[in-house]
Write a protein that binds this DNA or RNA. Sequence first.
DNA 1: TTGTAGGCGTTATCAC
DNA 2: GTGATAACGCCTACAA
Lengths: 342, 342
Amino acid sequence: MVTIADVARHAGVSSSTVSYVLSGKRSISEETRRRVQISVRELGYHPHAGARALAARRSHVVALMVPLRTDVYVPVMMEIAISVTMAARQHGYDVLLITNDEGPAGVKRIAASGLADGVILMDVELDDERIPVLRAQGTQATLIGLAEDGRGLSCVDHDFAAAGAVCADHLADLGHREIAFIGYGSGVYHRHAGYAERTLTGFRDRAEQRGLRFLHRSCEGTYESTAGTLSRVLADRPGTTGFVVQNEGAIGPLLTLLRMSGRTVPEDASVIALCQDQLAEQFAPRLTAVTGSAQTLGRVAVEQVMRRLAAAGGGDRPADERVLLTPALTIRDSTGPAPRQP
Amino acid sequence: MVTIADVARHAGVSSSTVSYVLSGKRSISEETRRRVQISVRELGYHPHAGARALAARRSHVVALMVPLRTDVYVPVMMEIAISVTMAARQHGYDVLLITNDEGPAGVKRIAASGLADGVILMDVELDDERIPVLRAQGTQATLIGLAEDGRGLSCVDHDFAAAGAVCADHLADLGHREIAFIGYGSGVYHRHAGYAERTLTGFRDRAEQRGLRFLHRSCEGTYESTAGTLSRVLADRPGTTGFVVQNEGAIGPLLTLLRMSGRTVPEDASVIALCQDQLAEQFAPRLTAVTGSAQTLGRVAVEQVMRRLAAAGGGDRPADERVLLTPALTIRDSTGPAPRQP
DNA sequence: TTGTAGGCGTTATCAC
DNA sequence: GTGATAACGCCTACAA
């Protein structure tokens, strides 16, 4: 292994000079800097991470704790993980992946061992057990999601309520009066700690403001479940012309079922989905959708931890940020003006 | 921060004793061990990762390098990442997430800095630039996927050829004679370094052995693309009764299109998919599918690196393992006997 | 069975 | 602008 001493010898300077060239923490003559940089490159020197963490009391690692569940929004999770990793690299940080099943003890382990300087928590519950641990350890952290008590933490999430509201607005603008909201299976509403509820609430509130009649129905996302849901909707509210689909598993079935029931999209029924653009593009017709950027979510989370780390490193008290990302409506071919005769 | 010295003082022993209790590298009297363990727990001691890595020259971290592409099999990637993380934990290891865009330099960085002891590479190309770097650094590594030159490495992958063969066999057993293989867009065949080709080859070989007529058609996975593909298939080979779908994006559209063309599945046409069980269960009818376990893939990869690390640590030359996981056929409702009259 | 001490590679404080 | 040098916390011969 090539050490800082090797570089120093090669460049004809002391190892502290090499260290300072690399960290930029004191001014170095142009000449020396160049010599050192050349030596670094020639020898292929990379500082030993452990030694650095030990001496500087900073690991330059953030931990990302991901949920185990591979049900609802897996592709999004991966996208977040990747954007977190790339954003972290831009700050000179690496990302350690931790799974949720380690629970509070895992957070404690990571923090106490100095493995990571900061933590990003996904799939946060309203009253999350890991949060007190974070506080006790004095570890800088950001939540992706919203917790009840966010003191001492930053957090970022999609503005799901806004997403729901946008759906209501879009359909109302098109003249629809009776809407069905196809949600997740009932279990998800509890588990996801508000993720699903917030969307529904946002939709509901706006729908009421706009004078829409609407129905919310749980749906497991299978074909059978969607078929059952749709037939109940049409039985209860035959005049329904607008569908908001939250459960991405139900999208395909719903489109098929509408077609089979003789309804054309968007002439007879409009469908708006809460899903990623990539998915929305795959259907026929291409779906109007409301989407939040998973990439931005990850990036913002990293920037929040970095700011906290910088503040804490400078002796300041980090600010508790709380960011909600506004989702975007992309109008495609699955929504249109409400039909004259329902 | 609580250090090993704190624990030693609290337990009334020397710090080396604490170290040995924790590592189990020498025999300790029952009495001492208990005292130390109690102190560890009471003080909430976790060894400082950096210090440990520095002294023991082992970071107890493996790096997992994931592809950036969020197109083909994202959910699978996440599943692998999670199973890698959990398997690693069982060996006392943590997982560092690295993105593919860092390329060979990233591998070098991780290895040279001692950040990770071993590396797991995903999305490997046949002639991958990262492999020589791994060799040069003497870093223990496992590939998820197959490379041309695997010397000095272990690797594990699904047996995609077997998966293709199983599809051919299943349809042949049911009496189908004309099969269409709905593949990925042409780009994927090159990019995925054999992943897609191997499936196709396996299918093709077995299909020939079994005397099947078949057609391979690329398909982008959108509705339009699938529609085009299907109509060409039916034009060229109206007698086609069996469909093998490799591109999971094409599954939904294909089912819809078959239905629209008046074909009932599985009475008039059988469909077998190469996709995860979870996805296969979502369609109507539930799909017969050939699946490999992403979880196993991750676990095996970890075990391979661990074995290599153990060997290298013991001064032995690690064995270059090469494992192909046999996929499983799950027969559901989308395949049945070939119709008498095509 | 246990303790002592040297060293792992960096950073950062002091001195010049 | 640059060099010594003392930590940082742990592991592991070497002693006892």
